[in-house]
Amino acid sequence: MTRSRFVTAATRCLSLCRPSASRRRGLLRASLLLLAGLGIHSMQVQADGEFRISAIPDEAPTELIRKFEPLADYLSAALEMDVSFVPVTDYAATVEALVSEQIDMAWLGGFTYVQAAQRSDGKVEPIVQRAEDERFQSVFITQTDSPIQSIADLKGVNFTFGSPSSTSGHLMPRHYLTQEGINVDDDLSVAFSGAHDATAFAVAGGRVDAGALNIKVWEKLVNEQKVDTGKLRVFYTTPEYHDYNWTIRSGLSEELRQKLIDAFVSLDMADPEQKAILDLQRATRFVPSQASYYDGIRKAAIEAQLLAKP
């Protein structure tokens, strides 16, 4: 339907060409029509009414797919519509995608939520978070035999964060470093490893003297013996702060929003299927979230000059 209307319009438009159109022009017109048709074709594919979710790439993409596809299936049943998981390779791009309504809901970190809220003039909304996200922490690690014992010893060393957009891998560690009297830009030689696990590996490999990462990822790496605790040690753990949440874009219906919250909150460890989903999320249960939880992070970001004042 749409296509035919467009084609008619295109033909009308082209027929404004001078009547003495040669054969060559006919060819040109044909190819333009072809192009127009193709454009519409790809548009229709995009316009399908499905609910698209995504997540910041704080872990390897396959890991993300493994983690989120069962959840997408669960949501699909709960919402009675198709839910698909869209993998994204870049933190900032996830934010942009949510703000520009390319995706409907995203698993964001505290900092990326704050960014999304600012870039959408507060139109995106955090709906749920894990119970664990209410008390999140970062750890600072170094090599076992390194002379670094406390944050004060960090002056002049090579230090790596995770991704620049990460809350637990960059913003909050930077915030607490500043609180402890370190000027991150001047006192440290800073690098960004890109991800939490990459930070652990970089420090273990001795390429940097110390690094900061998400405590959950650190615990996972230690439990799965991906890092050698004989080589690495934690020398500082940050105070607690709010982190990850599920954020929805602006313009979703109230009904859909409520359905989503209910679907998350009703996930129950007692149900074996739902327990599997919760385990993949490394959650015990989901609780409703709200924007004010992230005021601390917003303040930290403004202080660190990583966020413009509203």
Binding site: S31, L34, S42, M43, Q46, A47, S100, E101, Q102
Partner: peptide, 23 residues
């Protein structure tokens, strides 16, 4: 060349939305 033009995901709805211009 035409086939290539077709194979590309043009994201037209992304471009044509009014909010895109404002953004």
């Amino acid at each position: 060349v035409l086939a290539c033009f077709q194979a590309v995901d043009w994201q037209l709805e992304q471009w044509l939305r009014p909010s895109s211009f404002a953004r």
